[in-house]
């Protein structure tokens, strides 16, 4: 049953139709999560004992950083599936995630820098966390560049999948960098086995924002993937039928 659904989802016309039905729901949930997360984070959450109101940039910075890792994991997984099963949709998800991942990595780096200046006293240092996150940005940019350098898009997707899988070793390095080495960046607050070292009233909006970012990614990647599907299948019957009907 589930396998049959996955098989169906792999077919471009079904994917197009299914994602079209999914998008309004995703958008609605995303909007609610963002509204609550931003209000909760910027208004309801108490000020921090050391950083005062400046700590509130956490609601932009941390979800962006988490998403930058999450998107990469999605890409590596899609890449593996694309290499093994040669499913076109996974190739499309893989390459269309790269721009979003790059954007959120950039956002995490920029907001981190803005946060670092007043708190640490510097915009940037070459510690293990910051450097490995910068490497992630370069990985994303490398993937985008490699994909556009190869004309045959199916071959390009396979090359990109291999690059994505090579880069996946950087993900645990980013996550554990603050534990393995001494860094200026502090250790994990939420993503550890211990109880999160953040007050519950501050934590809840943070988790809501993290989900909001995930939904935003899902929406943008589906929109991009739908465009890509239409473009790749532009000569097939179902696409022509789709546009003849709407004229």
């Amino acid at each position: 049953m589930i396998m049959r659904f996955i098989h169906k989802l792999g077919s471009p016309p079904y994917f197009y139709q299914f994602s079209g039905r999914l998008l309004p729901w995703l958008s609605g949930i995303c909007l609610i999560l963002f509204a609550y997360g931003l209000y909760g984070g910027l208004v309801l959450a108490p000020t921090d004992y050391q950083q005062g109101d400046s700590f509130r940039i956490i609601y932009i910075h941390v979800p962006a950083a988490w998403l930058s890792l999450f998107v990469y994991m999605v890409m590596a997984f899609s890449g593996a599936v694309a290499l093994i099963w040669r499913i076109k949709i996974t190739e499309i998800i893989l390459i269309n995630s790269a721009h979003i991942g790059a954007a959120f990595t950039f956002l995490a780096l920029i907001t981190g820098s803005i946060w670092g200046k007043p708190m640490w006293g510097t915009w940037w240092v070459w510690d293990a966390r910051l450097t490995s996150e910068l490497l992630l940005l370069f990985l994303y940019l490398g993937i985008i560049a490699l994909y556009s350098a190869i004309d045959d898009k199916r071959k390009a997707a396979r090359a990109v999948a291999i690059l994505a899988l090579v880069g996946v070793v950087n993900i645990p390095i980013i996550h554990y960098s603050v534990e393995w080495w001494s860094t200026l960046h502090q250790g994990p607050t939420v993503t550890k086995f211990d109880k999160p070292s953040i007050d519950t009233r501050m934590l809840i909006p943070l988790l809501v924002m993290a989900f909001a970012y995930k939904f935003l990614y899902a929406i943008v990647v589906l929109l991009r993937a739908r465009n890509d599907v239409l473009w790749r299948e532009r000569r097939s019957q179902w696409v022509t039928a789709l546009f003849d009907g709407s004229k």
């Binding site: 108490p46 000020t47 921090d48 004992y49 050391q50 950083q51 700590f55 956490i58 708190m119 640490w120 006293g121 510097t122 240092v125 200026l184 502090q186 250790g187 994990p188 607050t189 070292s197 953040i198 007050d199 009233r201 501050m202």
Partner: peptide, 18 residues
């Protein structure tokens, strides 16, 4: 030559800190 502050991973309201 340079002094940077390292903040910890704890976030809490002032009354909890007290």
């Amino acid at each position: 030559e340079e002094v940077l502050a390292k903040h910890d991973e704890n976030y809490m309201p002032p009354e909890v800190a007290a």
